[in-house]
Amino acid sequence: MRRERRRYYAVMLMLIFVCGIVLTACQGGLTGGEKGQNQEVQKEFFAMDTYMTFSLYGEKAGETLKDAEAKIRKLESEWSVTNQNSEIYQVNHSNGNPVTLSEDTAEVVRYALDMAKETGGALDPTIYPVLTAWGFTTGKNRVPKETEIRTLLEHVGYEKVILDGQTLTLPEEMELDLGAVGKGYAGDLTADLVKEHGLESALLNIGGNIQAVGSRPDGEDWRLAIRSPYGEGEVGLLKVSDCAVVTSGNYERYFTAKDGTRYGHIIDPKTGYPVDNGLASVTIVTEEGKMGDALSTALFVKGLDGAKAYWQSHDGFEMIVMTEDQKLYVTEGLDEKFTLSGTFSQMERHVIRR
């Protein structure tokens, strides 16, 4: 939901392979394939400050795609931090007064707060002012002074947010941002809509968050290329069906300071500084996009040991972790589904087991 994501996701669209075909832009138009159950309708559009590509298969694909795009735009109008008419904007400018939310917005806020608690604050939807101080929400990057960061952290803390039913109270000088769960939650709701229309096969690329509905029309798994966090190209191929795939990494958005220090956009809510723990990327595979979105960020913050420990004590997801020294860690549920490719075929590989 932030403007600086645009360039990264425009590139990302060129790196997601499906059925051996690169997802390419349609310039906002519709493309159609063969008729019947395998009929494909695809559209690229811009929403939530990112590029999205929806590929739907089936006789009702065209009308379903229109409803799916409308759903995304409705959620965007409710969750944007910059749209003065959005619910989140109203919350952030409420001066501590209660704000009544719509059902969708209340649910996504509740989930963000629950995951913040579940991850011990590694995910915190109130970190937005700190992100802004570093310039990751404005595109004007800078290194804030330590005193500035300490002051901003006084107004960060998910536990200070009060959500009673659909009534949200945010203390003064705090700001809420759903960027860490919003796209995943939107993916879940859109996937539900697609299924309600009777479609059994669809691929929703929501700015790099992949939501797979069912399997490919031929019954085989979708084949997704995982982008290399070390440079151009992809590091391997992942086979999945009916799930969400979400990746986080500081290679996505970063800046280099005058002293040569590189700062990534994923901030540790406890320190207010960009994460620097040796991880290059974390990919989460799970049934729910909202969980994938939340955990890809939170486990990146936790680091390798923290991510491994979290997975070993929680069910409902699998993960792929890559370190800056080019080591690969894959949970056992994905060991046979993820294959390294090209120059990465000899990458040191470790399987994480319970």
Rank of each mutant, 00 (worst) to 15 (best):
R7G: 07
A10W: 15
A10P: 03
L13R: 14
I16D: 03
I21S: 09
V22P: 12
C26T: 13
C26I: 12
Q42E: 10
M48E: 07
G58Y: 00
A61G: 02
E63K: 06
D67C: 13
L75M: 14
L75C: 07
E87A: 05
I88L: 12
S94V: 09
G96W: 10
P98E: 12
S102M: 12
E103R: 12
A106L: 13
E107M: 15
Y111W: 15
L113C: 07
D114P: 02
A116E: 05
A122T: 01
D124E: 10
I127F: 04
W134Y: 06
N141D: 13
P144C: 05
K145M: 15
K145T: 09
K145F: 13
I149C: 11
L153A: 05
E154G: 14
E154A: 07
V156L: 11
Y158F: 09
I162L: 13
L163G: 00
D164G: 01
E173W: 10
E175Y: 06
D177S: 12
A180P: 12
G187D: 05
T190G: 01
L199W: 03
V213W: 06
R223G: 08
L224M: 15
S228V: 04
S228L: 10
G231C: 10
E232T: 09
G233I: 10
N250V: 04
Y251M: 13
R262M: 11
R262A: 05
K270N: 12
G272S: 04
G278Y: 11
G278N: 06
S281Y: 01
T286M: 13
E288M: 15
K290L: 12
T297H: 02
K302P: 05
W311C: 06
D315M: 15
G316Q: 14
G316S: 06
E318R: 03
E318H: 06
Q326S: 13
L328F: 02
V330H: 03
T331W: 14
E336V: 08
T339Q: 13
S341F: 03
E348M: 09
I352E: 00
